[in-house]
């Protein structure tokens, strides 16, 4: 349905398409986070830093002010690989820590990455970020049409690209969940002691989840900076973004793929898509009636999100679409 939407709704070619694209991209990052938080049950507060790292690597590899300028697709592969490697490096000493300490480590890492982004000005471009990032397919001509130009002009191209990436990631996460590795993740989450006695090395298993989470977030970061065209302000990759994605995963339902997608769509869709359009509509109405704009939803948006979070957690603490397992676990803890 989402794939067909642009055909029927031409507005997606413009600003709305861009907004939908960013929601899809955050869906990808949230699925990565879900691997870590949902499947292995470890609190991860620095997902946005991996998101930012993926984007930064892509920018370094592709912007014209750097000499490398490899194409979009190889750059995506290299950046995802590098982000995964950094995840492994960070994870291998720290994943032996107990849950709460790991949360602190990821939180600290997020801040370190943000500060590095700000201060390594020659590498990252500091607060201005790196840009312009050439759109995917620039320089490739299909029947006389420059694909790169099409990507810039018509945001449906990015919409589709993100949709395909999201589809691939959903498939990947689903396959992983049903694999032997996925079962080992869940075993470690459920009963670490018993998992250790059947020979599962908790560190290795968590490390794999951490690396996969980093790689998926890195992919999302690549798509994000490519669709915006610049890495932008590094502060956008800070703690707030990490927590917002975590909230979306929790609202949707931990460990559940459709839940994660729904959670992100509600939380970020509300934030990125609904509020701007409602505001512009309200401004028009109010302009006609009072000549001035008295009220914007945008200024209340954080309060609304907060209230929504409280309501969901009060009435449906396992999330909107909980996974079967979490529902069982929740039942047990209630008894």
């Amino acid at each position: 349905m989402l794939a067909l939407a642009p055909w029927f709704y031409p507005a997606l070619a413009g600003g709305l398409g861009g907004q939908m694209t960013s929601v899809l991209i955050i869906c990808i990052a949230a699925l990565g986070l879900n691997v870590m938080v949902g499947f292995t049950g470890f609190l991860h507060l620095g997902i946005a830093s991996f998101f930012g790292l993926g984007g930064l690597f892509l920018a370094i590899l592709t912007v014209p002010m750097n000499p490398l300028e490899i194409g979009f697709l190889p750059a995506v592969f290299v950046s995802v690989g590098l982000t995964a490697a950094i995840g492994t490096l960070l994870g291998s000493p720290t994943l032996r820590l107990r849950g709460e300490y790991l949360a602190i480590v990821t939180l600290g890492f997020g801040e370190v990455v943000r500060v590095l982004f700000l201060n390594l000005e020659n590498v990252t471009g500091g607060t201005q970020g790196l840009g312009p990032i050439p759109p995917p397919g620039s320089g490739i001509f299909v029947t006389g049409i420059d694909l790169g130009r099409e990507f810039v002009v018509d945001s449906r191209w990015f919409y589709y690209l993100s949709l395909i990436a999201l589809f691939v990631v959903v498939l990947l996460v689903r396959v992983l969940e049903k694999s032997a590795l996925g079962r080992a993740w869940i075993a470690v989450r459920e009963e670490p002691l018993a998992a250790a006695t059947i020979g599962i090395s908790a560190t290795k298993v968590r490390l794999s989840a951490f690396t996969i989470a980093a790689a998926i977030a890195g992919l999302a970061g690549c798509l994000s900076v490519a669709s915006i065209g610049t890495t932008g302000d590094p502060n956008a990759f800070g703690f707030n973004r990490s927590v917002a994605i975590l909230c979306a995963v929790i609202i949707g339902g931990l460990g559940s793929i459709p839940g994660t997608l729904v959670g992100v769509t509600i939380l970020f869709g509300f934030d990125i898509v609904v509020i701007p359009s409602v505001d512009s509509w309200m401004q028009r109405i109010q302009g006609q009636v009072f000549d001035v704009s008295l009220f914007t939803l945008g200024s209340w948006r954080l309060a609304l999100v907060g209230i929504a979070l409280i309501v969901v957690m009060r009435f449906r603490p396992i999330g909107l679409i909980p996974s079967r397992r979490f529902a069982a676990e929740f039942q047990e803890s209630k008894q």
Partner: peptide
């Protein structure tokens, strides 16, 4: 100390695989 939110089948399957 079984894995509570896994089915009996999965409980044993994960152990067999790890073996």
């Amino acid at each position: 100390r079984n894995f509570p939110a896994m089915t009996v089948f999965e409980n044993i399957l994960v152990t067999v695989e790890q073996g």
